[in-house]
Design a binder for these strands. Structure first.
Lengths: 161, 161
DNA sequence: TTATGTTTTCAATAAATTCTGAAACCATTG
DNA sequence: CAATGGTTTCAGAATTTATTGAAAACATAA
């Protein structure tokens, strides 16, 4: 019989649910939380085939989820002797998890904002009476951008478990 | 002629786009960013009717967006003499914005996780050889939860513009 | 009281996102 | 070389989320 659905144990289900809720909080899909959660609670490295079976998701969903988690460095591939399949383990240092997520999802946006502000700022000169107000507001956004950028570094330093 | 669509100026459109991108980064819908962005760049308090006209969104979307922004304390209602309509202004202190968002979206989830971990932890005893591994992992999640909780306070203290 | 202005609500619709699973691709085995 | 195991890709389907706009609700004016 083919290796189809394998049930999760109660504690596996509960821990996976914790991570499903957690990733949804930062705007990531449920399947990302499922995959990470299962790897997190697993005592040994896990193959994609096993992920598919235990979580009852498609191979496509498993593949794309693994790819995205790898891009966050939230999981890593690990070598298992005598196996052709790839095996994965969860990253379990909080600091690294946060760094990966920020680096991949937040930092590019904050950096791009810097460029866009350079482009927007000269526009205030076209607005006569409103120029002072607009300049003030854009200065505020610039300060928030700089603050966000340095905040990321602070957060990562603080999270030093 | 009815008060239908009023065009945005170039700088209004650019600033609104900045906030649309910003809110999408934290998993909120585009219309929230549009409304906040428009209030942010506006030199004076704005009515819902005006928001609807300038942003070309429905009255329902405007109403629900205003309600959600109010719940984050990202905007506040303000009195305009001689007007029956409600008028709104943007909160422009970064610290207050972050506090509102965390308080409304993040803190409740972190608090709930505390309760769920209390429920999950006793389950490890059922798993024989795996108990130590599971206990270790749940302890790690508990430490991450506590760290997240105190991190929120740190972030808000740091953001003291 | 009715009329009018304004906001809220929510079922239906539209749009966006996620997932599926088969085809394509790639690497290893025979 | 072909066969097989394993992963990636992606068009279409399914699901979820956001928006619409009319009805309902509410407050004020007449």
């Amino acid at each position: 019989m083919e290796n189809d659905n394998e049930p999760l144990t109660p504690i596996e289900a509960e821990v996976i649910n914790v991570f499903v809720r957690g990733v949804q909080l930062v705007g990531l899909p449920k399947s990302i939380g499922e995959i990470y959660g299962y790897l997190f609670i697993s005592p040994e490295p896990v193959s994609m085939d096993k992920i598919k079976s235990k979580l009852n998701i498609s191979v496509g969903s498993a593949s794309q989820g693994l790819r995205q988690l790898k891009s966050f460095r939230a999981i890593k591939a690990t070598y298992v002797a005598g196996e052709r399949k790839d095996y994965y383990v969860a990253e379990t240092e909080f600091r690294k998890l946060i760094y990966g997520f920020f680096n991949e999802e937040i930092k590019p946006q904050v950096d791009e904002l810097e460029q866009r502000l350079i482009h927007i700022k000269p526009m205030v000169d076209q607005y006569g009476d409103l120029s002072e107000h607009y300049k003030s507001r854009l200065d505020k956004v610039e300060r928030w951008r700089k603050l966000s950028s340095s905040l990321i570094g602070k957060v990562i330093t603080f999270v030093n478990i």
